[in-house]
Write a protein that binds this DNA or RNA. Structure first.
Lengths: 246, 246
DNA sequence: TTACATTTGTTCGTATGTATA
DNA sequence: TTATACATACGAACAAATGTA
């Protein structure tokens, strides 16, 4: 069975899945950018030659995956990390009494390097490929509680620099969106307990050998493309890492 | 606006939400039990007097919440914890190389007690209400890696005993389902790093003061009813706690 | 304030396809 | 083969939210 519309690689079978693929393709090609509205249902129906229900089912899934956001009476928008709800989707640290707070970030390290084994494996690179490697110290209520060691492929972030990272007005994932057209839509995380080393102890003002929560994260864009590898260490004396399993 | 069908407390407004509420009510009253099929779409349409699309939208949400499972050509079933996919929904421990394995469980403690402050707060009890409190040691490949300290209200598990807990053929949540008609459908978890105490060290064969991952879990049934409070401690030397954030 | 056009949300009903027993 | 059950697709009508003239 051939493609039913435009040049999208439709394998056929289920029409709404084809529509979803086509929408996803348009998104990853940047036809509609984060925070922008996509065309109205009526226009998309004309474009794809399908019924409302079929289009809706395709969009339903993209909404469920947090890729699109619908607003009745306004339109359907490409999701961003700017939106308040989306920030805490990827920042899951709360005070132990349940209080949510936005962290302040200090860039503590930045350099260009060859990917080590762990980074290459996590990002699907060849060992030796270039990465930018940088560290952030995150504070809540003026107390440093978390250190993020982050690696991203130079290939996907060719113009990244320490200055631009320092000047970013927004969240990191928002910066990826606005300045590099890269949309983080999913993360895989693995958690362990570890002990604070000398640097951890200094930066977080704790004793060496304190227990820390370590989070190894791989962040993905469309089509399961791996964008970022991050190792976080969290001081859980007064905070905790939370999530809910529905 | 009054109820549109049977005795369900319909506040009106959105029909498919009413249907969903009615289905949920029937489920929590035990009209259909775990692993059983609910009536076919055609029969439910007659019962509720709605169209296919409306019924389907209600069921769609229950499927998305892992409460029902659809099988084309067979029927729609009440989810259980028996099913292979569902076990690892709540047991998120993997070997560091990614290998999944079912744990073996040893019941290490069991007693009836008055709820302490943490248990009462987590389960919404008055301090002093009766709980069953028991501990499991979980092993992977014959090595103990996790200790679960579990508390449940006596009121919801009146006939629970050490013998029944020890003889249960299946997973714990499956036991709750089969023997007490209680369906765990969601958990909230909070994670911290902590250090092994003497008992942890003895039971897991590690040094006192080793770093452990601590997981505080509240498990819910329908209507956000709190059923179980659990504090787990995991040795992350060779294993890790995983999840993905879509 | 009101009226109107636009956009998404809900509900209906029907026809056909696909998987299962 | 046949009957049953869920899955997909279509299209129409009306409701509700939004922004604007």
């Amino acid at each position: 069975m051939g493609s039913r519309f435009d040049a999208s690689a439709s394998i056929g079978g289920v029409l709404y899945k084809d529509v979803k693929r086509a929408l996803l393709a348009a998104l990853s090609e940047g036809e509609w950018k984060p925070a922008e509205a996509i065309p109205s249902e009526r226009r998309l129906i004309e474009r794809f030659g399908v019924s409302v229900g079929t289009l809706r089912k395709a969009i339903d899934e993209l909404v469920a995956e947090n890729i699109l956001i619908r607003h009745q009476g306004r339109g359907t928008y490409v999701a961003t990390h700017r939106m308040e709800d989306h920030f805490f989707r990827f920042f899951r640290v709360l005070r132990q009494d349940g209080h949510r707070d936005y962290p302040t970030v200090r860039l503590a390290k930045f350099r260009r390097a060859k990917a080590d084994k762990a980074e290459a494996a996590a990002l699907g690179l060849s060992p030796g490929d270039a990465v930018f490697r940088f560290s952030n110290v995150l504070s809540l209520e003026n107390t440093p509680v978390m250190i993020d060691d982050i690696a991203v492929p130079v290939e996907r972030f060719p113009t990244l620099s320490e200055a631009r990272l320092r000047e970013r007005p927004n969240t990191l994932y928002n910066f990826y969106q606005d300045d590099f057209g890269i949309n983080i839509i999913r993360t895989d995380e693995r958690l362990r307990a570890t002990l604070a080393n000398a640097e951890d102890a200094e930066w977080m003002g704790i004793a060496e050998g304190s227990a820390l929560l370590q989070v190894l994260r791989v962040a993905y864009s469309y089509h399961d493309e791996r964008i970022e590898y991050r190792v976080s260490k969290l001081n859980t004396t007064h905070h905790e890492f939370t999530f809910s399993q529905p």
